[in-house]
Nucleic acid binder design. Structure first.
Lengths: 137, 137
DNA sequence: CTGTGTGCAAACACTTTGCAGGTGT
DNA sequence: ACACCTGCAAAGTGTTTGCACACAG
C-alpha cells in the first residue's frame, strides 16, 4: 500500500489517521480543504488530529498549501519535493463550476521580468475557469 | 479629496467609515487585510462595519481580493475596473521579509496553454520574494 | 518501555447575520 | 422623510493549545 510506504519513508509512525488522510488525498487527486478531508475520514477521528496531521505532512514536505481564491486553505500532495528541496513553481487550476482545484504539474510558469530590486523566490499561478470534466457536460 | 470623489462616482453615501477605509488604502498603496485596516481606522468604528464596507467596495468593483499564501484575505484598490468590467489579470508580489503584498499592474501574465478541455476565465499570479525596499537594506 | 500521537475541552481568530437606532442626501 | 449605514450582540466557522491517556516501534 502506497500510503504506508510514504509514511515509512518520512519516519512517521503509521497511525490510522495518517493512513486515512493520505489515502484520501491519493484517491482524490485534487487539492482538498481540511473540511473536505474531515468529511471523508472515519468519524471517530478528531477534527484536531486532522489539523495536526496536515501540519505534520506540511513540515515533512509531503503536501503543500494550494492557493485558493482567498478564503479556504487547501492542500495537495507534493510531487517531487521533500523537506529540503521544494519546487513549487506550480500552476493550479480551480474550476468555477465544480469547485475542484487541481495541480497542473506539467505546465511551467513562464519567466517573469520583475521591476528592479525585486527578487523572486517562489511563484504561484492560479487559473480559474472551467475544467475538462465540467466543460464536457 | 480623492476618496470623496470615488464614493460619489459609485453612488455611495460618504460616511466616516467609508472615507477612512478608502483613505487608508489610498495612502498605503499595497494590499491590506481586514485586521490591518481595523488597526488604522478610528477605534470608534466597529469591526463589523469594516467588513461590510469592504464587501460594499468589492461589489462596486472598487477593490479586489488579493491572493495571499493561503490564510489571510487581503484587499487592494482596483485600477481600471468597475462593477461590470473587471480585468484582474493581476500579478501580485508578496515580500517574504516585510510581508507586504503589492499589485504589479504593469506586468502582464504570459499566455498559458491549458490541457484540452480547460477554459481559462481568470488568472492570478502570486510571486513571493524580496521587494525593492527590503533588498536595499 | 518511551516518546510520539490522539481525543477532549477550551480558547482564540475570522466572518456573517439580525435587529434597533442613527445619519446622509 | 426615507433609505441606507452603523453599532451591538450573537452565532457560525476555522484553527490553535493544554493536558491526560493510548499506542506504535
Amino acid at each position: 500500500m502506497e500510503a504506508l510506504h510514504l509514511l515509512k519513508d518520512l519516519n512517521l509512525k503509521s497511525t490510522s489517521c495518517r493512513k486515512e488522510v493520505l489515502m484520501i488525498m491519493l484517491a482524490k487527486g485534487h487539492a482538498l480543504s481540511h473540511s473536505e478531508i474531515e468529511k471523508d475520514v472515519n468519524p471517530s477521528i478528531d477534527r484536531v488530529t486532522v489539523y495536526r496531521t496536515l501540519k505534520t505532512f506540511l513540515d515533512k514536505g509531503l503536501i503543500h498549501k494550494v492557493l485558493d481564491d482567498a478564503g479556504v486553505t487547501k492542500y495537495a500532495l507534493c510531487q517531487g519535493c521533500r523537506t529540503d528541496d521544494h519546487h513549487h513553481e506550480h500552476v493550479h487550476f480551480k474550476c468555477s463550476n465544480c469547485g475542484q482545484t487541481i495541480c497542473l504539474d506539467e505546465i511551467d510558469i513562464p519567466p517573469i521580468t520583475l521591476p528592479a530590486g525585486f527578487t523572486s523566490a517562489e511563484k504561484n499561478l492560479l487559473i480559474q475557469g472551467v475544467c475538462d470534466t465540467c466543460s464536457a457536460l
